[in-house]
């Protein structure tokens, strides 16, 4: 069974989003390349190990594209033990959307990649992110952002 403790301090979006893991208007040809690019930002920032990117792809190969959580939005991740160094979140917005093969929510143009170190530390950030993505105005601002800096201020404000 998964943990259910809320007592420990968890990190908010402000604590896990870094400017180096945000990029707007990225060109990719496939969902695999989208995973590479979003994961690549986390790798370059020293937040994950290389194997974590492959693990995020394998999760989709194994279990399907259920991580496309809403129209146009994917929240990629794998398990902590597959190479997360620090709780983290990357976002790339795509210049041209790509299909993940989801039954309802394709095509995708907002690609989040998350790394959790355990069951708890990322919960506040996850909740803040879910609330944000449930707000159509916020989402349209994220889609319209022209730079990583703009994405940063949208995510942490």
């Amino acid at each position: 069974m998964t943990g259910n403790k809320q007592g420990r301090a968890t990190l908010g979006l402000k604590m896990i989003v870094t400017g180096s893991a945000l990029q707007a208007g990225v060109m990719v040809q496939s969902w695999q390349e989208a995973v590479d690019r979003a994961g690549g930002l986390l790798l370059k920032s020293g937040l994950i190990l290389p194997g974590y990117i492959e693990a995020m792809k394998n999760a989709i190969y194994d279990m399907g594209p259920y991580m496309v959580i809403a129209p146009g939005i994917v929240l990629l991740h794998a398990r902590p033990e597959e190479g997360v160094i620090k709780t983290c979140l990357a976002l790339i917005t795509l210049a041209q959307p790509v299909n993940f093969g989801h039954s309802e929510n394709d095509p995708v143009d907002l690609v989040f990649a998350m790394g959790a170190v355990d069951k708890d530390a990322h919960l506040l950030a996850l909740q803040q992110l879910a609330e944000m993505l449930g707000d159509p105005t916020k989402v349209s601002h994220i889609r319209a952002a022209g730079s990583g800096e703009e994405l940063f201020s949208l995510l942490v404000s």
Partner: peptide, 15 residues
Amino acid sequence: LCGMGFGTSMMLKLF
């Protein structure tokens, strides 16, 4: 439920 128990299922639980 989700594939790993860290993301989607947690989000659903929180909501």
